[in-house]
Amino acid sequence: MDKRIIIIIAAIIVIIAIIGIYAYSASNNPDKSKLRISTTTSLEDTGLLKEVEAAFEKKYPGVDVQIVSGGTGIALQYGERGDVDLMLVHDKKREQEFIKNGTGTNRTEFAYNYFWIVGPADDPAGIKGLNATAAFAKIAEMGEQNPDQVKFVSRGDDSGTHAREKKIWNDSGVGYQNVTNQSWYIESGKGMGDTLILANERNAYTISDSGTFLAFTKDGKISLVPIITTGSDLLNIYTAMPINPDRHPQTNIEGANNFVNFLISPEGQQIIGNYGNQQYGQPLFTPIVTNPVPSLLTPLVSNPVPA
């Protein structure tokens, strides 16, 4: 073979090898100028995350926070695929499974509020004064008797709110599987804001995080009223979970940990605790570090978060 051809072939092989090494290196080295976060819709719809993001980017001016909003189920899918660096969600059972399977490094609880059972002001099912499980049982009973007057709208989107709704149906003795095919039970398949609007249009009950409900009520988008707002069944805790770089090497774990630590820092907790006072006359979330849930039995951080 011609010597020149051999040299050319060797040069091509070297170039291909260099390109391969560069591509591998790039795929395993995170872009620290970007922090990708998937979040539950309530943190986005209320506007809290926008305020936290602005404060974080001011403290870390070299980082561009990129947020995608969806239900907890969607957020977990993003995390499983390694499409994001950090998740902000609210479904403890699935969070613990996510940590157990090694996709997340730890779960850090940073805020809470309560799910509210909301509905028409005239309360056609007569649930006022009941607890959450008794209320769901009464809605099912009255919905079967009078489906034209008593309706329930579900998110039906595998979100954290939907997961809590299913749990309450099951705990009530009715059983989630027994309501999904009923004429009075309606699935929106959408986020919290759209579900509230649909429930308002259908004059129906639904379950909502208190923050989104207050935001939509203040804006005049809905006329539903809160009917049941307290009880351990309705406690709603928000958690941050960084993606494990051992599972997805391109994860910006430094940025993710910085954001988690910012959320639980005095500055971050103050932003959370104050948010909503000016706009809605009351805070939409409670900072969990400075105001822990009285009955909270689990540690705020399952594993330590590196500084």
Rank of each mutant, 00 (worst) to 15 (best):
Ile5Ala: 11
Ile6Ala: 14
Ile15Trp: 05
Ala17Asn: 05
Ile19Asp: 00
Ile19Glu: 00
Ile21Pro: 00
Tyr24Thr: 12
Ala26Cys: 07
Ser27Ala: 12
Pro30Ala: 03
Asp31Phe: 03
Thr40Leu: 02
Glu53Val: 14
Glu57Gln: 10
Tyr60Ser: 08
Tyr60Lys: 13
Gly62Asp: 11
Val63His: 07
Gln66Leu: 09
Ile67Phe: 04
Val68Asn: 13
Gly70Trp: 03
Glu80Gln: 09
Asp83Phe: 13
Asp85Gly: 05
Val89Gln: 02
His90Thr: 06
Lys92Leu: 11
Arg94His: 11
Thr103Ala: 01
Thr105Val: 06
Glu109Gly: 07
Asn113Leu: 03
Trp116Ser: 06
Ala132Gly: 07
Thr133Glu: 10
Ala134Arg: 05
Ala137Lys: 09
Gly143Thr: 14
Gln145His: 09
Val150Trp: 02
Gly160Leu: 13
His162Tyr: 11
Ala163Val: 06
Ala163Ile: 07
Ile168Pro: 13
Ser172Gly: 04
Asn178Trp: 06
Ile207Val: 14
Ser208Met: 05
Asp209Trp: 02
Leu214Ile: 15
Ile222Pro: 15
Leu224Asn: 08
Thr229Ser: 14
Pro245Met: 10
Gln250Asn: 12
Thr251Leu: 05
Asn258Glu: 07
Ile264Met: 02
Ile264Trp: 01
Gln269Tyr: 08
Gln269His: 07
Gln269Gly: 06
Gln282Val: 15
Pro292His: 02
Leu296Lys: 10
Leu296Asn: 08
